[in-house]
Design a protein around this nucleic acid. Sequence first.
DNA 1: CTACATCCTCCAGTCTTTGGAGGATCAAGC
DNA 2: GCTTGATCCTCCAAAGACTGGAGGATGTAG
Lengths: 135, 135
Amino acid sequence: MAMLMIGELARRTGAKVNTIRFYEDIGLMPLAARTDSGRRTYGEADVRRLKFIRNGRELGFSTEELKSLISLSEQPDRDCGAAAAIARRHLAGVEARMARLALLRTELEEVAFNCDGGHMADCQILEAIAEAGSR
Amino acid sequence: MAMLMIGELARRTGAKVNTIRFYEDIGLMPLAARTDSGRRTYGEADVRRLKFIRNGRELGFSTEELKSLISLSEQPDRDCGAAAAIARRHLAGVEARMARLALLRTELEEVAFNCDGGHMADCQILEAIAEAGSR
DNA sequence: CTACATCCTCCAGTCTTTGGAGGATCAAGC
DNA sequence: GCTTGATCCTCCAAAGACTGGAGGATGTAG
């Protein structure tokens, strides 16, 4: 199979080249194989893994959580419950924020029309943000 | 009115003392008045402002966005549209993530039961994360 | 053979906190 | 008045997750 250079991997996953090297440093991506001249080479598995990582990051998983999930996935006999626990713990924290964001969005939609011509003095947006937490 | 010390402000807003000082450094909170011995004092307006900031941060607004919103709010004659624009731009980015999170959550709920006893090899959680972005 | 893109390493900076060291100040109790 | 403990001060360092640049080697296309 065709080996990819780091730039191509970056293009396929949307990650920056430097970010990929950073992921290797912290052990989130494996140590890449190298060509004779020292360039990193990647395969399809790396594309999948990096996509998984980018996705997880955008969903708010920390690199540590992702590391755990990946290392769990590499032990096919292990209990799946551990992975579920990580994901659930993470999602628990996420749900509250989602709810508040949804609320803020609604408020913002309601307000957006009035606002476009109005003055700051009557602007509801700030109140919407200020109160999106209280309930 | 009673002046608050920084610790009391922290208690009322949930921010750490150090964080409040940091906000002052970057101009997100105003330079606090000081007692003779140099301690910062705060009033009710500061409590409101800091609550607004904490809220905004938890909703994902950057400190720069919050600075803009606050400075807009201090010019009551300015067009409210600018504030709406900031908030809308921010929310646009947020909606996609919300949708994907909602999807992931659903997937996770579906899967959580099967998973608790199963093996990693059949675990759907990783797929759920890997694909939460694709659609 | 000359450009030019891409790669390498290493280092520095960004952003938003959080924590700690070392020292001053305050309120309360003895 | 003096000690104790809490709180405050400033300054500095680190954490987490990148991002960018300098300086140099390598690969490729014309």
